[in-house]
């Protein structure tokens, strides 16, 4: 936690967050005086999800999503908490940068969507072509900007050219200088109502999408693919695919175990808010599910390292995901019932 000053001298507290989008949204609310944590934003914005998208490839490997599509968590959370945001995209980079400078001068802090590869302060090993990394610009400094990137421990400096490149890099799904800042925020949001909405929405996302690649069905689909993969693709290629999946679970700023720990933290806070024992139990169950995902990552890493060859097999890794799927299905079915009884 570090305190920085925005352009008009108002203090801004930098919190180290697990995920860029939820942490940025939470920081924007906090700056306006609404104290709301990162897991709360994640829960209210219905961030938890599962999707296995074999037809969308990143670095020749299929995408496994553990959260809902980029941008949606911010939109949903803002709507449910009664925050009014100015959201803009630009065709002309020069205009986009000029407007950013003007807004910063009025003392606002500004959220930006950028390409992770071109941000100059990211080290070579952490770079990859991802067009939805969210950061906050605090103020303009000489030759650049002061930036609070919640996935970093402290605020960082970024050159103006680098930021320009990261905001306006062309290519598929490019951010077009996507920029957002608060117009007005409800100082006393209806947290309980927002939580219930978020929970119900998550239930339908996980259970009701009638396609085999989303929600708990998607997990089973992926599990079966993993079990069959060594026969179908050969050991080396199967390892690459498995490693790709584990990177989605642990590496993409999830706070551990594919957002499951963050979601458990949300239920922990919600249990306090509603003083409900059922929600506290659900939080514990979610933690256990998270531990289960961790075990999957561990098993996968052992398969790749080829330790305990006989014991750690693809069948075991797939089995762990099937177990996760069963537990999550039971979890969300129970949540459906619990959420119906909660009063806003």
């Amino acid at each position: 936690m570090t305190t920085e000053l925005a352009a008009n001298g108002k203090p801004y507290v930098h919190h180290h967050g697990a995920h860029c989008e939820t942490a940025v949204t939470s920081a924007l609310f906090r700056y306006q005086g609404v104290d709301i944590s990162e897991p709360m934003i994640f829960g209210i914005g219905s961030g938890i999800f599962f999707g296995y998208l074999p037809f969308i490839k990143l670095v020749h490997l299929p995408v496994t999503a553990f959260r809902y599509k980029p941008g949606a968590v911010f939109h949903k959370a803002a709507k449910r908490l009664g925050g009014d945001f100015v959201i803009k995209t630009y065709r002309d980079p020069q205009k986009g940068m000029d407007e950013l400078r003007q807004v910063l001068k009025t003392g606002q802090i500004v959220g930006l969507s950028t390409n992770l590869y071109w941000l100059p302060y990211v080290t070579e090993r952490h770079r990859h072509n991802f067009n939805g990394h969210n950061i906050i610009v605090l103020r303009e400094i000489e030759g650049g900007f002061r930036i609070s990137d919640p996935t970093f421990g402290d605020p960082v400096d970024c050159s103006a050219d680098g930021l320009d490149q990261a905001r306006f890099v062309p290519g598929p799904l490019n951010p077009h200088g996507y920029m957002y800042y608060t117009k007005s925020v409800n100082p006393h949001p209806d947290l309980r109502g927002a939580c219930i909405k978020g929970m119900k929405d998550s239930c339908s996302l996980m259970l009701r999408i009638p396609l085999p690649i989303f929600g708990v069905r998607g997990m089973r689909f992926l599990a079966k693919k993993i079990i069959k993969s060594p026969d179908k693709l050969g050991f080396q290629e199967a390892c690459r695919h498995l490693a790709g999946t584990v990177r989605w679970v642990e590496e993409t700023g999830t706070g551990g175990a594919g957002f499951r720990y963050m979601y458990a933290a949300f239920f922990h806070e919600a249990a306090g808010l509603f003083s409900s024992d059922e929600l506290a139990d659900l939080s514990k169950e979610m933690t256990a599910i998270g531990d289960n995902w961790r075990e999957f990552s561990l098993t996968a890493a052992r398969i790749i390292k080829q330790k305990d060859k006989a014991e750690e097999t693809f069948a075991k890794a797939g089995g762990l995901i099937l177990k996760c799927a069963d537990r999550e299905e039971a979890f969300f079915r129970k949540l459906q019932k619990v959420a119906r009884q909660l009063k806003a």
Binding site: G256, Y261, M262
Partner: peptide, 16 residues
């Protein structure tokens, strides 16, 4: 570079 993880502390509360 450090990464934030959510974990339970001794009192059963989630912390970063």
């Amino acid at each position: 570079v450090k990464r934030a993880c959510f974990a339970l502390n001794d009192e059963g509360k989630y912390v970063v």
